[in-house]
């Protein structure tokens, strides 16, 4: 019960932190921010890993965990890389325009 209460506190404080962090986001960054936050939500991969580590030799659970891990990692790797791709373009766009004019 204590553990659960502590977890509820963590949930509450985490939510407040999230509300606080996204203050004034310029419209330019809406798309990258969404895809970046999306990548973070793939953190369920930790839950998949935990499940697998606890599964012993149970093949059903291991394969289920493996699929879950695959989905989560698809989200994490894809999300971070695609966000980076977008943000790189922003940077170089600025730089080059500054150089040529």
């Amino acid at each position: 019960m204590d553990g659960f209460q502590e977890q509820l506190w963590v949930l509450l404080l985490g939510s407040l932190l999230g509300l606080e962090l996204i203050g004034k986001v310029p419209p330019t960054l809406h798309t990258p921010l969404m895809s970046g936050a999306n990548a973070i939500s793939g953190i369920t991969m930790l839950a998949a890993l935990t499940l697998m580590a606890r599964s012993g030799e149970n093949t059903l659970l291991l394969s289920l965990g493996s699929v879950a891990l695959g989905f989560a990692l698809f989200n994490v790797v894809g999300g971070f890389l695609v966000t980076d791709r977008m943000l790189t373009m922003f940077r170089s766009g600025r730089k080059r325009s500054g150089g040529s004019q």
């Binding site: 977890q7 963590v10 949930l11 404080l13 939510s15 932190l17 996204i22 973070i40 369920t44 935990t50």
Partner: peptide, 26 residues
Amino acid sequence: AAAGFVVGQRLLIVAGAMVGAAGLIL
């Protein structure tokens, strides 16, 4: 965050809650 409760991991709860709240604001 719910998965964090399921496996008892605080990091998931925090991260999930942050993304959940940030998503709502967005």
